Computed example of a mutant assay.
Amino acid sequence: MIDNRPVPWREVFIDEVTHTITGNVQIYESFPIPQLRTERRIWIYLPRSYNESNRSFPVYYMQDGQNVFDQATSWGCEWGVDETLEQMALEDPSLEVIVVAIDHGGDDRNHEYNFTINAEYNFGGKGAAYADFLAETLKPYIDSHYRTVLKRSLRPLLEVRLVLTSRCIRLFAIRISLAVWAGFPLSCGTTVAGSSN
């Protein structure tokens, strides 16, 4: 059960730091992740027309939430997703989407974003629990609290998980921002070690 509500980003960041957030961004300060027995900050970007219509919107789930909307919270450079979506909405409102950005777990980031344990670098193994959080906790919550374009099932998310956990990941299946150098087989018998995102 989620017992907190999102608040506008200006109510969360009351410091004197310059923030680069654009548009209607709300924040859950401590969204529970029961599968990992932790909590995480979740950012919700709502499209320009969200409060002006009854329209439902597609949802994009993005990892490394600290980087998605705000230079002040990013590890390096902000990705500018909010600015890009605001401009796209002006040019073509049919492209509007909801974005759900999940902060990474700091020191646990590599553990949570990798399904297998990389013995050489001593991380990984929590990726299945993180994928379960996305499919079983976060997506159903977002679908029940926001006007989203609902799919009939979680099959697309589950297919992504199956592809990621299969012993033989095909290059044509999907492209996900994942630390490939953790030892994922890209095709049967081929492992990439040393490449980075």
Rank of each mutant, 00 (worst) to 15 (best):
V99P: 07
Q63T: 05
V180H: 04
T116L: 09
E86N: 09
T22E: 10
D143P: 00
L164T: 02
D132F: 12
G189Q: 13
D143T: 00
R5G: 05
P93V: 01
L46S: 05
G189C: 15
T148P: 07
T148V: 03
A131G: 15
V68I: 08
E112P: 01
V192T: 13
E39F: 12
P47H: 00
Q66C: 04
L178H: 01
L85A: 02
W75L: 14
S166Q: 06
V81C: 06
D64C: 08
I102W: 03
Y113T: 02
L178I: 10
V192K: 12
V163Q: 11
L150R: 06
T73Y: 08
I117T: 14
Y121F: 15
V12L: 03
L162C: 04
D143S: 00
N114M: 12
R147P: 03
V59Q: 03
K126E: 11
Q63E: 04
I33E: 02
V100K: 01
P185F: 15
G125I: 10
I117N: 05
D64Q: 03
V160Y: 12
G65A: 10
Q71R: 00
G105T: 04
L178V: 15
N24G: 11
F133Q: 03
E11I: 08
E39C: 11
P34F: 01
G65D: 10
T137L: 07
R37T: 11
M1H: 13
N110T: 06
P47A: 04
T73N: 07
Y113S: 03
D132H: 12
G65K: 14
T84W: 09
R48K: 09
N51T: 15
V81E: 03
R5M: 13
D107Y: 08
R152S: 09
E112S: 01
P8D: 01
N24Y: 14
N54V: 05
L164R: 03
L162Y: 02
E86M: 08
L150F: 11
V17D: 12
T20V: 11
E91T: 14
V180D: 02
D132A: 12
E39G: 12
E136H: 08
R41S: 06
F115V: 15
P34R: 00
I176L: 13
G125W: 02
V160D: 13
N24I: 14
A72E: 01
L171F: 08
N114W: 01
R167M: 14
S196A: 15
I27P: 03
L46M: 02
A173D: 08
D92A: 03
M62E: 10
T22G: 02
R41P: 04
A89L: 03
S53F: 12
V12Y: 02
R161F: 08
R55P: 09
A193T: 13
I27S: 00
G23S: 11
A128R: 04
Y113W: 11
Y28E: 11
R55A: 15
E159V: 06
G125M: 07
T165I: 11
Y28K: 02
E16S: 13
M62C: 05
P6G: 10
I21P: 11
H19K: 11
L138G: 12
F184A: 06
M62Q: 14
M88D: 01
L95H: 06
P32F: 00
A72H: 00
E83R: 09
A173H: 10
V59H: 05
A182R: 14
V160S: 08
G105Y: 08
D107N: 12
